[in-house]
């Protein structure tokens, strides 16, 4: 059975103005998004910065007011008076490792917080669990008594990872979980996430700008632009056979780790950018919004205008 099903999700934020500070318009942060995630799957959400990825993740977590749509976790409808026991099953690793950690709390209290809410552990048991969790993310046990500001950016992100996995949830929403890490620690965290996934049959919603990481981790990928999906497919379909012009541009912009290819890459990107500009209105309506997704294979859907 499908683990997470998001149907026609819309999250709009009011724009207020005028002397009465009334609602004069709305930012359509998420504007009609549909996707499903199967148990055990890693589903990637990538796209334009500001396109609504975090807002989508937060909506699933119950952290946003939903303007429209339904979110099902298994067969439970989440956005109508959500139950606490389901909330334990969904955890989120937040994009900003700085603001999501309480600066006045020690690491042990940060990581143990979810444990304290849901499990009844003795002080010693708790300490051991936190120590194990820290080790899993590559931090030493002595970190326990420190405060967030005493850590580097990447170290803080790992504290967030440790907290999110503390309760062994079913679904983890990971918003840029490794972008603050160097590639070796990143590799360590990603390998660990994959092992943990197999061990506990976890499901991941993986939000990231790093397309090589997404390619390495994800089974299927959704591409967002301006509040909507422009394309969805298996990892292979998205990387080998991108159909939407925005996806093509995204794939072309991936930095190349061979400095010798600089010139070639610049030229290729210019070319794709030109194609993008020239064919923009074949792919977006007059408001710059993507069209409805149309299936082109069983797994591959692309936002293209109605023909005819």
């Amino acid at each position: 059975m499908t683990l997470l099903k998001v149907e026609d999700l819309k999250v709009h934020f009011p724009i207020r103005g005028g002397i009465l500070n009334r609602k004069i318009d709305a930012i359509r942060a998420v504007d009609g998004v549909n996707f499903e995630i199967e148990p055990g799957e890693t589903y990637g959400l990538v796209g334009e910065s500001g396109s609504g990825k975090t807002t989508t993740g937060k909506a699933v977590m119950g952290l946003n007011n939903i303007t429209n749509g339904e979110i099902y976790f298994g067969d439970e409808l989440l956005n109508k008076g959500n139950k606490v026991n389901i909330r334990k099953d969904i955890q989120m690793i937040f994009q900003d490792p700085y603001s999501s950690l309480n600066p006045r709390k020690r690491v042990i209290d940060i990581i143990a917080e979810p444990l304290r809410n849901y499990e009844n552990l003795s002080k010693d048991e708790e300490k051991k669990r936190v120590k194990d969790l820290l080790e899993k993310v590559g931090l030493t046990a002595e970190s326990m008594l420190k405060y967030p500001h005493e850590f580097s950016g990447g170290q803080r992100q790992r504290i967030g990872v440790a907290r999110a996995i503390a309760l062994e949830p079913k679904l983890i929403i990971m918003d840029e979980p490794v972008s603050a890490l160097d590639v070796s620690v990143q590799a360590q965290v990603l390998n660990f996430m994959q092992d943990l996934q197999k061990e506990l049959n976890l499901t991941y919603l993986f939000i990231s700008h790093d397309l090589s990481v997404v390619k390495h981790m994800c089974d299927r990928i959704g591409i967002m632009y301006n509040g909507r999906y422009v394309e969805e497919g298996t990892t292979k379909e998205i990387f080998n056979d991108p159909q939407h012009i925005y996806t093509k541009r995204l794939v072309a912009a991936i930095p190349d780790i061979d400095p010798k290819n600089r010139k070639e890459n610049t030229n290729f990107r210019e070319q794709v950018k030109e194609e993008y500009t020239n064919s923009y209105y074949d792919y977006f309506d007059e408001d710059g919004l993507a069209y409805q997704l149309k299936p082109i294979t069983d797994t591959h859907r692309v936002a293209l205008p109605e023909r005819g």
């Binding site: 070796s184 590799a187 090589s212 990481v213």
Partner: peptide
Amino acid sequence: RSLLSSIPLLDDVQDKLHVIHGIVPSLKN
């Protein structure tokens, strides 16, 4: 050399990414 070998490569499917042995000692240690 270790760092460069940890990069996930776009045109290659790796099962496991290369990880540097051990953990970074803390500032004090």
